[in-house]
Nucleic acid binder design. Sequence first.
DNA 1: TGACATTGGATAGTTCCACTATCACCATGG
DNA 2: CCATGGTGATAGTGGAACTATCCAATGTCA
Lengths: 202, 202
Amino acid sequence: MQMAELSGRTGVPVPTLKYYLREGLLMPGVPTSATRSTYAQEHVERVRLVRALVETGGLSLASARAVVLALDAPVKRALDILGTAHEALPAPGSEHPESAEVADLVTELGWQVERRAVARHSLSAALEATAQAGVPVGTEELRRYARAAQTIAEVDVQSAAAAPDLTHMLRTVVVGTVMIDPVLSALRRLAQEHVTVSRLAP
Amino acid sequence: MQMAELSGRTGVPVPTLKYYLREGLLMPGVPTSATRSTYAQEHVERVRLVRALVETGGLSLASARAVVLALDAPVKRALDILGTAHEALPAPGSEHPESAEVADLVTELGWQVERRAVARHSLSAALEATAQAGVPVGTEELRRYARAAQTIAEVDVQSAAAAPDLTHMLRTVVVGTVMIDPVLSALRRLAQEHVTVSRLAP
DNA sequence: TGACATTGGATAGTTCCACTATCACCATGG
DNA sequence: CCATGGTGATAGTGGAACTATCCAATGTCA
């Protein structure tokens, strides 16, 4: 397969594929001559992955590149996978200091989370922003959200554990972490409607 | 308070405030002369809300405007609030057709959700994109995510129900729907680490 | 009173991102 | 053998979100 067919199968225009090549989002094909290369199924999958990350996951091209680079790197131990994944993913508010509220939450729930985990900063920043927006999250609500997040994480980890090898496991964790967020967001809105309707019109 | 002080209190530069004024994101102050207006606390709150929606919620300025317009409109019945909120919020993939998988999920869980609810399309699009990214969500996983989403939605609805009046209720629902997503995302990553660590190193 | 800063309103310019177009040159296949 | 399509390089486009400049009118303070 060469460029035109890759374009046809993915729905991405040729100039854009060239751009992705330049930007390191798509690995080069195998050159068959000075001016020709062929591409394989893995290129099709890569392009589809990039588009999914960008369009649905809301990543910038730069973040998408970090993700695919992480996927290409070899994996040593299962324990490293989550760290690699969370490093490769964009962490909004990573420069925000951790709030006491977050520290309390983590210890109170007995969660085993590194003191320097970026997600602590992200959570602090998100809570701060929510308060700035005029609708602060109460302690009790936060606790209930956290418990729901834990059941979600258990599903995540089980799915990842079902992967046949470490490479697939990394892929499941990285891609899942990015792509399931929109799924959860849509499910939440659906559930909001159900809960509201069943309360007001039982 | 005039423009310079509004800028000082919010940390937003004066030219940007003028821009927000032009774009209808910030309501005009009360003019005290041909070339001067004064701003009040509500303006400070509005600016902070807009910045929170844009920076943390990830909304475009256009979406943020739709949100603040919705907040300014009067509310008639509590039942309309969720509809108003979901209309004002951006719905990724709203043009995507609803998949059979989503229809099945909703009926199977007994969720009372309008046939034409946009969240159905958003969910279909998100699931499709996840599959395109090479990590499809299994039926069983989806069901478990959905149940977790329902507990989250119950917290959402309870928080909203605690509002003193319909205006505050609308505010809680709209802002909460946008701003809690990042909170949940961060909680999920924290929980992933906890679950992983307690599995691998019990 | 007069110097100076600030405001509102208008218009134009900048930066970044994600493409998209064009060009010159080359290789293959019918 | 030459039209078709590929390659790499360079340049251009369009949208979003600011940012800068200018102006005349108006406050503020020495």
